[in-house]
């Protein structure tokens, strides 16, 4: 498979063309707007947290396929997870994207498809935009409400 096909795997193109949970959540517990100033990728991430669990995730945004597909895949993965596990998953995903060895690769499931981005260092931050926004949002939420 060529590097390009490795980058633009079908699952990524599918999430880009048909994003999941692409919706604004009114009055969400967490709402953050973040962008990649260099690329112009931007997202608004909405997360509801109840009893230590991620009960709802939605996003709005525009940007390249990698940034938008990655955040779409993220919303599916995080939905229903305990916050601590969601954070762990986000950190595992980040470690994989930064080329670190990941013990628990199975937990990533089809997120492994994004591994092809590694060969394009300037695009890694596109893939991480949603995840970093989530981690930041959880941190802000915990500071406000206690973890």
């Amino acid at each position: 498979m060529s590097d390009l096909e490795d980058l633009y795997k079908e699952v990524i193109l599918d999430h880009y063309r048909t994003p999941r949970n692409r919706t604004k959540i009114e009055g969400a517990d967490v709402h953050l707007h973040r962008d990649n100033p260099l690329c112009g990728d931007e997202i608004d991430l909405y997360v509801d947290i109840e009893d230590g669990k991620v009960t709802n995730v939605g996003f709005e945004g525009r940007g390249c396929s990698i940034s938008q597909a990655s955040v779409s895949m993220m919303t599916e993965k995080l939905m229903g997870l305990p916050v601590a596990e969601a954070e762990e998953l986000a950190n595992t995903f980040k470690a994989m994207m930064q080329g670190e060895s990941v013990e628990d690769e199975d937990s990533l499931g089809d997120l492994v498809a994004l591994q092809g981005v590694q060969k394009y260092p300037v695009r890694i931050k596109c893939a991480l935009l949603g995840w970093n926004t989530f981690l930041e949002g959880v941190k802000v939420h915990n500071e406000k409400h206690g973890s």
């Binding site: 060529s2 390009l4 390249c64 695009r123």
Partner: peptide
């Protein structure tokens, strides 16, 4: 509506 970064990467390929 193809994002320029996708275009740029595919062109580079």
């Amino acid at each position: 509506d193809i994002h320029p970064h996708d275009v740029g990467t595919i062109m580079d390929g």
